[in-house]
């Protein structure tokens, strides 16, 4: 059974700090965890969240091209102000969590968020 997960739910599940988020009630349908942007670019998913440890502006650009609506920086990483601004400008939510990548992905998966494979 598919659960409805919102950006707000993700922030709660991963105990995130919200760096920018204009629509916390927006639904998330799939998730993707990667530091390799070309791997992210290989598989289109709708209404997705991207979990990553990479901190450069290309993360936001990649999300923008893919219509990814939310980015979670793992392991307590804090992106540069200009990176947050770029995301804000593009209407992409940015969260940061202290969880490591594996834990963050596991928590989301066990709470009903899939990877979108086969859709």
């Amino acid at each position: 059974m598919r659960c409805v997960v919102t950006i707000k739910n993700i922030a709660e599940l991963l105990v995130c700090d919200i760096l920018t988020c204009e629509e916390p009630d927006k639904e998330i349908h799939t998730a993707c965890g990667s530091d390799m942007m070309s791997d992210v670019l290989a598989f289109v998913k709708d209404q997705a969240v991207l979990l990553t440890g990479l901190m450069n502006p290309q993360v936001i650009r990649t999300a923008e091209m893919m219509d990814i609506i939310c980015i979670v920086f793992v392991r307590g990483k804090m992106p540069h102000e200009s990176v947050i601004e770029l995301a804000k400008d593009r209407g992409i939510a940015v969260l940061t969590t202290k969880h490591r990548m594996f834990e963050a992905c596991g928590l989301l998966y066990s709470n009903g968020l899939g990877g979108g494979a086969g859709h």
Partner: peptide, 11 residues
Amino acid sequence: LGFGAGMGLPN
């Protein structure tokens, strides 16, 4: 930087 994995042209 998250690129250069040999996926660009195939993508």
